[in-house]
């Protein structure tokens, strides 16, 4: 009996996100942002690229390029060159295209410079605005039927354990995703969304594929966390793939080590096209598409669009 009154004590603890911005989303850094310093300062920034433990920063001809899908937000670059990079207090860091996680201080607004998606010589993964819109429209078509009842199956494909805590937090009274019609399910046969953490260890590739195949269509795949997006610090090891992009057709990419509950919630809403139209809440300020191709041989970069 005493638990009944205990449950009522404290009133409503639940966030209003996404209908309203949540201040907590801006209290700490979800990713790194490039400052728009001129090309001159960036030229002597080779040290920055060398210092990055996951090679997320590259110096290009006319500026810096940051791959948020590789970034583990250790903040070393910010300590080293606060004039060029800064912490970004945003939680809406997920994206529909792998290439969209790559941001650059190079030429701005010059989208014509991008070859059309899939054209020979096109930057793998990087998307001009039109193609991103097309991608969103096709995803919207696929997920229209799911809207009010989205069932999520989580699979750990080699995480460090912290991602599971943040996913589990989504059901606590603060995030309470059930209010949005989002539910976690045990059976892949009931699942619409596959939420995958970890860098895809050799032992989990089989179970991961089986889970995906057991899901009914339409199905949506989310790579949750930097490890799942690119392998993070584990990329290049003998026992892991560079993320899950070479194994499954990923629809939404959420960087973060681990991604915060708000980043995960945003990613799930993005996957089922449930985000309100009004942009700009908890939003990263630097989401222009990349103008520079990925490093060749990065398997995760080639999985920009759903199959």
């Amino acid at each position: 009996m005493p638990w009944i009154s205990r449950g009522l004590r404290g009133g409503i603890l639940t966030s209003r996100y996404p209908a309203q911005a949540d201040g907590y989303g801006e209290r700490w850094a979800g990713t790194i942002r490039l400052r728009h310093a001129g090309g001159g300062e960036a030229r002597d920034s080779t040290g920055l690229a060398v210092a990055c433990p996951t090679q997320a920063i590259a110096v290009t001809g006319d500026g810096l390029e940051l791959d948020r899908g590789r970034c583990v937000v250790c903040g070393r670059c910010v300590t080293l060159r606060p004039d060029l990079v800064e912490l970004d207090h945003a939680t809406e860091v997920g994206s529909l295209a792998r290439g969209d996680l790559v941001v650059s201080t190079g030429e701005q607004g010059d989208e014509d410079a991008c070859a059309p998606l899939g054209a020979p010589g096109a930057a793998p993964g990087s998307l001009p605005g039109d193609d991103l819109a097309r991608l969103r429209a096709s995803l919207e078509l696929r997920t229209r039927a799911l809207r009010r009842s989205v069932h999520v199956r989580h699979v750990d494909a080699g995480s460090d354990g912290s991602e599971e805590w943040e996913i589990a937090a989504l059901t606590n009274p603060v995030y309470d995703v059930q209010r949005l019609g989002i539910f976690f399910t045990a059976s892949p046969k009931h699942a619409d969304v596959l939420l995958v953490t970890g860098a895809a260890t050799a032992g989990m590739i089989g179970p991961l594929r089986q889970t995906y195949e057991a899901m009914p269509s339409p199905k949506v795949v989310i790579a949750a966390g930097t490890d799942a997006v690119s392998g993070g610090l584990l990329a290049g090891g003998y026992a892991t793939d560079g993320g899950i992009g070479s194994i499954l057709p990923v629809d939404v990419w959420i960087p973060g080590s681990p991604p915060s509950p708000f980043s995960l919630l945003h990613g799930i809403l993005l996957a089922v096209c449930l985000l309100p139209a009004a942009p700009g809440r908890n939003r990263s300020h630097d989401t222009r598409p990349a103008l520079v191709p990925h490093q060749p041989g990065d398997p995760s970069a080639t999985q920009g669009s759903p199959s």
Partner: peptide
């Protein structure tokens, strides 16, 4: 299933990367 080969990934790193 979750073996990530952590020990090998440490090797060759300076301690400031090792702590990550």
């Amino acid at each position: 299933h979750k073996h990530r080969g952590m020990e090998r990934r440490f090797e060759g790193m300076p301690p400031e990367d090792g702590v990550l």
